[in-house]
Design a binder for these strands. Sequence first.
DNA 1: ATGACAACCTGTGGGC
DNA 2: TGCCCACAGGTTGTCA
Length: 269
Amino acid sequence: MPELPEVETTLRGIEPYLRNVRIERVIVRQPQLRWPIDDDIQLLVGQTVRGLTRRAKYILVETDVGTAIWHLGMSGSLRLVTPTDEPAKHDHVDWVLSNGKVLRYHDPRRFGALLWVLPGEDSTHLSHLGPEPLTDAFDGDYLFARSRGKSQAIKTFIMDGKVVVGVGNIYANESLFLAGIRPTLAAGKVSKARYNELSVIIKDVLGAAIKQGGTTLRDFVGGDGKPGYFAQQLRVYGRGGEECKVCKSLLKEIRQGQRATVFCPQCQR
DNA sequence: ATGACAACCTGTGGGC
DNA sequence: TGCCCACAGGTTGTCA
């Protein structure tokens, strides 16, 4: 599930149940995630959650003695359950909370992570990241400047977290379609005008998806944890071989950097 | 430095 | 029905 809008939706869903709440127990059933969960995570026990924030696709949970950092990987999800709910397969971590809830982490592929950093310590995972796409620091001028001299394809360029965070495979495909840019173009050969359009489109697409996540927020916490966005609105992702919704040409599917790329050979040049 | 590619792990769906 | 392969929302590390 987790692209940036899903992470943002998760954050908004769990935030009211965690803020100012004490963590009574931390139960780790399976520490072998993307990186092994450090025993220091037990420092959370007895701490009150001061606040939750997001950086890229990481969710930061702040306490007085350190910050816990969740990453949902490809298949991770966080939801609130009650202590009587038996953990199922792939329910790797529980945080038992003072308000009677349990924050439960589920992740079949175990590409996610739960990290711990001390106050003032910089997480190596966050320090090298590029700007957030929904901030003013991310615009056409920035993309234009960063891309000069690059032969790398524009799709893998905008998916590079050192360039900009939060643009995953779905939204990279969709944004390039809406911008009319062929994903295989060398990033260094794309004009400033086109980068201006692309940056606006990325903001719009991510913003709209977050808004949709917001509408499913209510069932999210009590429900099955699946953000019910969006599939109907996807223009190209997952539609290789089908008709372009704009021009009826057949959408082409290729692979770039081990990821599926779908584009319209007519609309995207 | 850059960019292409493998790797981590499990589940699912298509083809035979 | 069952087996095998390819592929799935992400990120890091290695190698040429």
